[in-house]
Computed example of a mutant assay.
Amino acid sequence: MLNLIKDCVVKNTLKVERAKKNLTQADLAKLIMVSRQTIHAIESGKYVPSTVLALKIAHIFETTIEEVFELEESDWSK
């Protein structure tokens, strides 16, 4: 099961959502209490956030998790 999760690619609109709110990576990181590097890693697809972190991000952008994060189509067939 862990390998399935590890191999999944999660697309996100984090950079777009930040731009809408005029937030830098550092600004968002401070709001959700993580490092700027964590935000960068999420945006670049190198890190998939926990459910709690995804919920915090969605809350900041006043939207749903599904509006910010989405599995690649190919991951549904794994």
Score class of each variant (00 low, 15 high):
5 I>H: 13
77 S>G: 11
56 K>M: 08
1 M>N: 12
19 A>T: 04
68 V>G: 02
70 E>P: 15
73 E>G: 08
49 P>L: 02
78 K>I: 01
46 K>C: 10
19 A>Y: 02
36 R>A: 09
21 K>I: 13
46 K>A: 15
15 K>I: 05
58 A>R: 00
77 S>C: 08
74 S>M: 08
17 E>V: 15
60 I>R: 02
32 I>G: 05
53 L>R: 01
47 Y>I: 01
62 E>C: 10
39 I>D: 01
10 V>I: 11
17 E>G: 08
71 L>D: 00
22 N>Q: 14
75 D>P: 01
72 E>S: 13
15 K>A: 10
16 V>R: 05
58 A>S: 05
73 E>C: 12
19 A>N: 03
11 K>L: 09
27 D>F: 06
38 T>G: 06
10 V>M: 09
56 K>R: 09
12 N>H: 03
64 T>V: 10
34 V>A: 03
2 L>P: 13
30 K>A: 14
23 L>N: 13
74 S>R: 11
66 E>Q: 12
28 L>Y: 06
66 E>N: 14
52 V>S: 10
35 S>R: 03
65 I>V: 11
15 K>Q: 12
46 K>H: 13
6 K>L: 10
39 I>K: 05
67 E>Y: 12
56 K>Y: 04
24 T>Y: 02
44 S>Y: 00
9 V>S: 09
26 A>R: 08
29 A>H: 05
22 N>G: 07
50 S>K: 03
42 I>K: 05
44 S>D: 02
52 V>N: 15
66 E>S: 11
54 A>H: 03
3 N>L: 15
62 E>W: 05
19 A>G: 03
7 D>M: 12
24 T>E: 05
69 F>C: 07
70 E>C: 14
10 V>G: 04
64 T>I: 07
43 E>N: 04
41 A>P: 06
50 S>V: 00
55 L>D: 10
14 L>V: 00
8 C>S: 08
25 Q>Y: 05
11 K>I: 11
69 F>G: 07
77 S>L: 07
66 E>I: 00
24 T>V: 07
5 I>D: 06
41 A>W: 01
71 L>T: 04
1 M>W: 06
78 K>L: 02
19 A>D: 01
50 S>Y: 02
6 K>A: 08
9 V>Y: 03
26 A>S: 14
72 E>G: 11
72 E>N: 15
67 E>V: 14
67 E>A: 15
42 I>M: 04
4 L>Q: 06
12 N>M: 06
75 D>N: 12
31 L>E: 07
65 I>D: 00
66 E>L: 01
25 Q>D: 04
52 V>G: 15
22 N>D: 13
43 E>H: 04
44 S>E: 00
17 E>W: 12
34 V>M: 02
58 A>I: 04
17 E>Y: 08
67 E>C: 10
43 E>R: 05
54 A>K: 04
27 D>T: 13
46 K>D: 14
47 Y>W: 01
36 R>T: 04
27 D>M: 14
68 V>E: 00
46 K>P: 14
17 E>P: 08
5 I>T: 14
31 L>N: 08
70 E>F: 10
7 D>H: 08
1 M>P: 11
2 L>Q: 09
17 E>T: 14
10 V>N: 07
45 G>M: 03
64 T>Y: 04
44 S>C: 15
40 H>S: 12
62 E>P: 02
38 T>S: 11
52 V>L: 09
70 E>R: 09
58 A>G: 02
